[in-house]
Each structure stands twice: as structure tokens, then as C-alpha cells.
Amino acid sequence: MSDVKDFRLSAEAVAPLRHALPAVATQTVEAITEGVPAYAKAFAGELGPQIEKAVRAALATFLNLVSRSAGKGRGSPLTPALEAAYALGRGEARNGRSLDSLLAAYRLGARVAWRELAAISVRAGQDSATIAHFAEQVFAYIDELSAASVAGHADELASSGRVRRHLLERLAQALLAGEPAHVVTAAAERAEWVPPQTLTAVLVPEPFARSVLDLVDARTLQVAEAGPDETSVLLVPDAQGPSRIHLMRLLAGRGATVGPVRPWLQARDSLARAVRTSRFAPSAGGAVVDTEDHLVGLIVTADPQALADLRAKVLAPLAGEKEPVAAKLAETLRAWLQHQGRRDEVAAALFVHPQTVRYRMTQLRELYGDRLRDPQWLLELTVALALEPA
């Protein structure tokens, strides 16, 4: 604010202005009370006299700046005023308010203060050029205070935002670590996070995590380190029923894997299923993977060695065939089980002629004999062949 520091009024010109400060401060506060409704209650209550005192101090600081007798350099009275404006901006942020009302109060206060101070200067015989220059300094001063408040507001938001993000991350980590309910609930209270009824774990490739967060419920938690490599974990609140369908649409093209809905304290279970599903049914071409579509796969792959042993057992009758033939027979047997023996549907699924299916099934009946009519064997064959071999 070098212009204000360079501009000086004589002591004689400043004296009547300083004498009128209490009255000007009162009029300024009254104008702000009427013109900025957000401050009406605060000005009318116990804070009213303090605010009026602060306005008077701000005006006195300005007069000190433009007075010839004002000190220079390190002791400049501008510093306390800027610090007060900065603190005011931080206070507005802490109270969850935007700067709209505060900046409006600055503008209105500047107009009223200038009007009153200009009238006093005119009565004191100041020439028009001096008064015009004086006006420039008044509004430059208000601009400085406004800028300090904006900086304070931004710094408080950044600081409080970092703290809350840290608390939310700790909450998510506690959830996924399976901490006791009272520990997780306390973490939620510290983060000022209102628990939903349910949470759904979503694995999202890291490059898409930020854009997805902007689309989903604002209460969504994120843990970047909890998922597989280069995958972020999101815990989305209350994504059941129609909300789940909507979530799937939001995730389209982002290669996400969506876990089951679970009570919020059991979010860990949702993540575990999403991770397991992503391993045997990874997203292809950015498609969304819904774990609800892979329940059979989840079950039959729960014990990989048991599944391998079962496959070896039920495919033992094919052991004497050459590998290509055995593979085609196993593929035909799987399709035959899936389509309940309907030859034309089996042929369509395999892209072969129905006669080919008939020929292969004849081979299989010769190899398996009565076992293809045994319910227990059919159950074991169905489970063992439920998935394509890895």
C-alpha cells in the first residue's frame, strides 16, 4: 500500500477527522447493520460495541497512515490492521461462512466512512484535488484489508481442509482394519462424519479416483493404499437399490469394481470381496465389474486347490484322450451342463454344427458311462466346470 504511505495530510487537516472518528464509526456500523443482514444479529448483540471499536481502530489506523506525523518502516500502523483483517477472514472460514458478507461490509463501510470524512474535509477547507486523492487512499486501504481477509479465509480453509482430510483418512483406515466399533465411531466423531446406514467399497484405477469423487456422495471416504496396485478404494455411502444402479452409471468407462452393500461398520467385508473379484474377473475395456454378478465365481474360487482337485477328479475320464480332443470334450460338457442338454443351444454356444455336438456327447457318454446320469456327479461336474480354466 505504498500510495497511502506516500500520501500525507497535514496535522491541521487530520485533526477534525480524528475528532469525528467515534461518530463516523457509529454511522458506519449502522449502515453495515442495515445493508448487510448477515451481520445484523452480531452487531446488535454483545459483540456490537467490540465491532464498533474495531471499526474505529481501522479508521484511526488509516488516519495515522495519511498523517504527516505517522511513523514509517517497521512501526507502521498498517501491520496490526492487516493482521486483524486476516484474523477476521480466518474467523469467517471457521464459522463456515463465505466472504461475501464480509467483503460487502468492507465496501459499504468504505462508502459511508468516505462520505462522512469527505464532508468534514470540505468543511475544513480542503481543496478538491486533495479530497479526490484522499478518496483514492480510502478505497486503496479497504482493498488492502479485503485482500488480507481473503488470504486469511483461504488459509483457514486450506488448513482445516487438510486436518479434516487427515481425520477422514484415519477413519477409513480404521474401518478397513476392522477396528472395534467404539474406535471407529470415535474416529467418525472426530472427523465430524455422520455415519450412513451402509457403505459400498469401490476399486477405482488411480487416474479416475479424483473425477469419481466429484460425482458421488460427498461423504465418500477414500483410502489410496488399501486396494491392489495403482487402485484407490472408495467407500460410498448408501449405494443400495436404485442408488447402486446410478453408481454403476457414474462409474461407466472407468474400470471400477463395485463390492457388495454392507452395514457401514462392515465396510471391510465389501472391500475384501471387491479385491477377490478383481483378481479373477478384472475389468475389460473400462467396463464396471459388479461383484454381485460373480457370486458363483467367488464361491468356486474360494479354495483354489480344492477346485483344482475337483477338476482333476471329474475330468479323469478324459485323461486317455489327446490334449486338443480332451479340451473340446470338456468345453462341450460344460456347455451341455449349462444349457441342460439342449443340443441346438449347445451348438450355438460353441459355434459348431448340432451334429458335432451329438458326436462329442456320444464320446462323452462312452467315457463317463452312467456317471452322466448320477446327480452327485452332475453336481461336481457343474461346480468344477462353472468357470473357464485359468
Rank of each mutant, 00 (worst) to 15 (best):
V223E: 10
T33Y: 09
D3L: 14
E366I: 06
L250N: 00
P282N: 03
H339I: 04
G48F: 08
I142L: 06
Q240L: 04
R18C: 02
A129V: 15
A20P: 09
L171I: 01
R56A: 15
A284T: 13
Y141E: 06
H182P: 04
S121F: 05
A42W: 11
Y141A: 10
L65W: 02
A308F: 01
A312G: 11
L175Q: 03
A110D: 13
R311L: 09
P317N: 09
Q355W: 03
T130W: 13
L337I: 13
T257C: 14
L17N: 05
A308G: 12
G253R: 08
S270E: 08
Q27E: 15
D155Q: 14
V325W: 02
G297H: 06
L215F: 02
V296I: 12
A148W: 00
V314M: 06
V138E: 02
D344P: 00
L333V: 14
A272R: 05
L307N: 06
V212Q: 03
V204R: 07
Q173V: 08
F139T: 12
A224S: 15
Q305A: 13
R365H: 04
T382M: 04
G73Q: 13
L63R: 10
E156D: 14
I120E: 05
R164F: 07
S10E: 12
R56D: 11
F62C: 08
E169D: 14
L145W: 02
H182V: 11
F43E: 11
D303W: 01
T185G: 09
A267M: 06
A113S: 15
R365L: 04
R107W: 15
A87M: 12
P263E: 05
T185Y: 01
A20G: 13
I51A: 10
H166V: 11
R94D: 15
A104D: 14
Q50D: 11
I131K: 05
R365S: 09
D214W: 07
L387T: 00
V212R: 00
V138M: 05
I245G: 02
E179H: 10
R219L: 12
G253D: 02
G73R: 08
L367F: 05
T257Y: 02
A38H: 03
V212S: 01
T277G: 10
V55S: 03
A347G: 08
A148C: 08
H246Q: 12
A308W: 02
T231I: 06
V289E: 01
T356I: 05
A81E: 06
P196N: 07
G35T: 10
V236L: 00
P22W: 01
P37M: 12
S283K: 07
R262S: 08
G286A: 11
W114C: 03
N95D: 15
V236M: 02
G48N: 01
V296M: 12
I245R: 09
A11D: 12
Y359H: 15
G73K: 10
D100N: 07
R342Y: 08
I32K: 02
